[in-house]
Amino acid sequence: MAYGAYDPGAAHDAGAATAVTPVTVKILVAGGFGAGKTTLVGSVSEIRPLRTEETLSERSELVDSLYGIEQKSTTTVAMDFGRITIRDDLVVYLFGTPGQRRFWFMWDDLSYGALGAVVLADERRLADSFPSIDYFERNNIPFVVAVNSFDDAQHHSLDTITQALSLSGRVPVVRCDARQRGSSRGVLIALAEHAIALHHEAQFS
């Protein structure tokens, strides 16, 4: 298999029965079409970014889930995912899918056990990120907004963007270039630090 094998090294040698199951950390990447989800997942992933085409029926969107396949598959939606091995026994997985409300059924499945989410925003089309923000706020999933800076975008201040998105001041808003590995990684660090801050807040409230 060219790229699908999970191979964190010596932990999985011939004695697979004794293999260590790594602790997995799930991070979601959401945002409107064209905001740069695939690019971000691809730039930080150690494996070639993988895609699956999920099937869904437009009629049964309220009851569909990734879990079953009852529907007759009228449309498909791409899900990107990538992997970052921090240690043999600690692996970060990234899942990217569109944030539109009609895809929320996928998020219900994906967000199970997730550390948090990155909402990628294109500042020329900020409204496209509303549904993703709405989803994570409703479900109490920690998230950061990453403004993917395209060259020809007008550069609003991050404060202006925070206001335009009606975000509480506690949600980090950062700028990034999803094509750059270091920049994309910075977004993930901002998210993990935000999750830690929320953890501390919860403890002392």
């Binding site: 921090i86 240690r87 600690l90 970060v92 550390l115 830690i196």
Partner: peptide, 9 residues
């Protein structure tokens, strides 16, 4: 583990 993720990244 969250801290290990930050340090690792």
């Amino acid at each position: 583990i969250l801290q290990e993720v930050v340090d690792g990244l």
